[in-house]
């Protein structure tokens, strides 16, 4: 069996004295799409932020490519070929699309900026048309594409996506999910996806985890989870 690219072992994280993550175990193999689904406040985004070291895990360990990154500051973790498209997109609204992408390449050592740019533009052609426009003037879907594109500019081996479908029209969601699938299939990029949109996420992912109240409640392949009655009732049929 190959080494996992990222392994999270018994991680607990706290906001003040409130436990947000209670002993999480997650493994991500190279070339996989792994998704975490769960209700609001289950700790999905916290898990993603904990991987990035903000907040840092109080217990347990996070190993990336055999290196313990649990106690590293955020900016050092992000230099280790992990890139994130954060929740709420967090693009730079007053900088142009092109400048946003340049910022994404800030830590790409020895990278070929032009190649990386061409790669992002071929994945999301709309960004090329909008390249001199300011981030804040883009539509929500375009901003999400920009956030993903910006993350790709650092040539990551692991891409963390936090709710890329948030607040977007179904058509755009489909477009973004197909781009994610493309990245995974063509470039063998490993992707860790946090989603509310359980149906889409599970259909896309190789494996999935269901999070409830800071714990992993279920895990399995995407198809398995889709067919589980408790998943269907809790996340796919309006919570009824």
């Amino acid at each position: 069996m190959t080494e996992p690219l990222l392994s999270i072992k018994g991680v607990s994280a706290f906001y003040g004295s409130i436990a947000a993550l209670k002993g999480i175990d997650v493994e991500i193999m190279p070339g996989e799409i792994v998704t975490i689904i769960g209700a609001n406040g289950a700790g999905k985004s916290t898990l993603m932020m904990t991987i990035c070291g903000n907040p840092q895990a109080r217990e347990g360990s996070i190993i990336f490519e055999g290196r313990d990154i649990t106690d590293l500051p955020t900016y050092e973790i992000m230099r280790m070929k992990i890139a994130q498209s954060p929740e709420g997109r967090r693009i730079f609204p007053r900088m142009t699309v092109f400048e946003n992408l340049q910022m994404g390449a800030a830590t790409a050592e020895g990278g070929d900026f032009r190649n990386d740019l061409a790669r992002v533009y071929s994945l999301f052609p709309i960004l090329e048309q909008r390249s001199t426009q300011r981030g804040g003037t883009l539509s929500g879907g375009e901003q999400q594409m920009l956030a993903i594109g910006r993350a790709l500019m650092s040539r990551p081996r692991l891409l963390l996506l936090d709710e890329p479908s948030l607040g977007l029209a179904p058509l755009i969601v489909r477009q973004i999910f197909s781009a994610i699938r493309d990245l995974n299939q063509r470039e063998k990029l490993t992707i860790f996806l946090v989603e509310q949109n359980a149906f889409h996420a599970l259909k896309l992912a190789h494996r999935g985890y269901v999070m409830v109240n800071g714990r992993i409640a279920l895990q399995g392949t995407g198809r398995e989870l889709l067919e589980r009655p408790e998943v269907r009732s809790a996340y796919l049929e309006g919570g009824r």
């Binding site: 990035c52 900016y75 230099r79 954060p86 693009i91 730079f92 007053r94 830590t107 650092s154």
Partner: peptide, 12 residues
């Protein structure tokens, strides 16, 4: 513009 985003891009 956004300090958190800056940190997430690996800038100190």
């Amino acid at each position: 513009e956004d300090e958190i985003a800056v940190r997430s891009l690996g800038i100190n």
